[in-house]
Amino acid sequence: MRPLLASMFAILISVPAAHAQPVVLKVAHFLPVASAAHSKMIVPWCDKIESESQGQLKCQIYPAMQLGGNPSQLFGQARDGIADIVWTLPGYTPGRFPISEVFELPFVATTHQASSRALWDFTQQYAKSEFAGVKPIATWVNGPNYLHMRNKQVKTMEDLRGMKIRAPSRLSNELLTKLGASAMGMPLPQAVESYSKGVIDAALLPWEVIPGVKLHELSQYHAETAGPRMLATSTMIFVMNQKKYDSLPDELKKVIDANSGSDTSAWVAARFEEADKAGRKAAVDRGNTVYEISEDEMKRWTEATSSIRQEWIDAVGKKGADGQALYDAAISLVDKYSR
């Protein structure tokens, strides 16, 4: 009898992991399920960790702020454990990410993947304090933010005067103001409603969001900008509540770790790059006018907005950091990965 009991006990202790209850992660974001971010990035990432954990990690995704609140509160929801993981834009909470904000300065970012790898390295080296309470999974920049207009074509700075234009972040607000427009900072869901009602005349957005919110159906003109560096972009983050991560068994932490970091940031950026192409195609297929603002005109825009960089450097310096060194580090990392 004793050998039999010993054998049964050995079997019981050898297989509990296989029958353990899966860990269900609450994943929140602010866009509808039709968005590229939901279908091309969040769902595949969740599928990947479920497969690699043999079903021990699962996601319950809450799109369109289904956990309550507004987009500016998403980072706090992850930090405070209301959600386990969130995707959001740091620019929705002005002043919360003063160091990593450098990547949103005009004419810093180049391509999706290169700039996203640079952003990951930069945040790990210089901006870890901005992520207290969360574990970064990926950090990236979306595609170039272009001007999408309801019914007025913009080709010069003079054309921007008096126009009410949505901006996604504090620095984008400054950019538009320097160019002579009336900047209206607001999260995307609010911007789409304002755009449809004619409260704003245009929006500064990447192509990838256009189909998901049907902005191409409300627009006539789309102005792209020439040059190797983006006029504007937004930093994006995919972060996990630190306590939730710490509570995981080591083998599940390894799955999260294997799907975090520089390579994951570049993978996400590639998904957004593909979505940019699809968004542009949607506008072209509808018959909208898509055109490029000339390089000569872009030189004027560069000169008009050059003071924003020094203002950022000075503002960071007042908080005790070396703004010039941080700016130089960001540019150096972008250049390194852009070669």
Rank of each mutant, 00 (worst) to 15 (best):
M8E: 12
I11V: 15
L12Y: 10
S14M: 13
S14R: 11
V15S: 10
A17V: 14
A18I: 13
H29W: 05
K40V: 08
P44K: 04
W45S: 00
S51I: 12
L57V: 00
K58T: 10
L67K: 09
D84K: 01
W87N: 06
L89V: 13
P90L: 06
T93D: 10
P94V: 15
P98T: 06
I99E: 09
T110D: 05
R117L: 05
W120T: 08
W120L: 02
F122S: 04
Q125E: 14
Q125L: 12
Y126C: 00
K128C: 06
G133T: 09
G133S: 06
W140Y: 13
P144F: 10
R150S: 02
V154Y: 04
T156G: 09
M157A: 12
L160G: 02
S169V: 05
S169H: 13
L171N: 03
E174V: 01
M184S: 05
P189L: 08
A191H: 06
S196L: 07
V199C: 04
A202L: 08
A203I: 10
P206Q: 12
P206G: 12
W207L: 10
V209P: 01
G212K: 01
V213M: 14
V213Q: 08
K214L: 00
K214M: 06
G227M: 12
S234D: 07
T235Y: 00
I237K: 00
V239H: 07
N241G: 09
Q242W: 08
K253R: 14
K254V: 05
K254Y: 08
V255D: 06
V255H: 06
D257Y: 07
A258Y: 01
T264A: 13
T264D: 02
A270D: 14
D276S: 07
A278M: 11
G279S: 09
A282Q: 04
A282W: 04
A283H: 03
A283S: 15
V284C: 03
V284E: 15
D285E: 15
V290P: 03
Y291K: 06
S294C: 11
D296C: 02
R300A: 07
E303M: 13
A304E: 14
A304V: 14
Q310G: 03
E311K: 12
A325N: 07
I331N: 03
V334Y: 01
D335M: 10
Y337H: 09
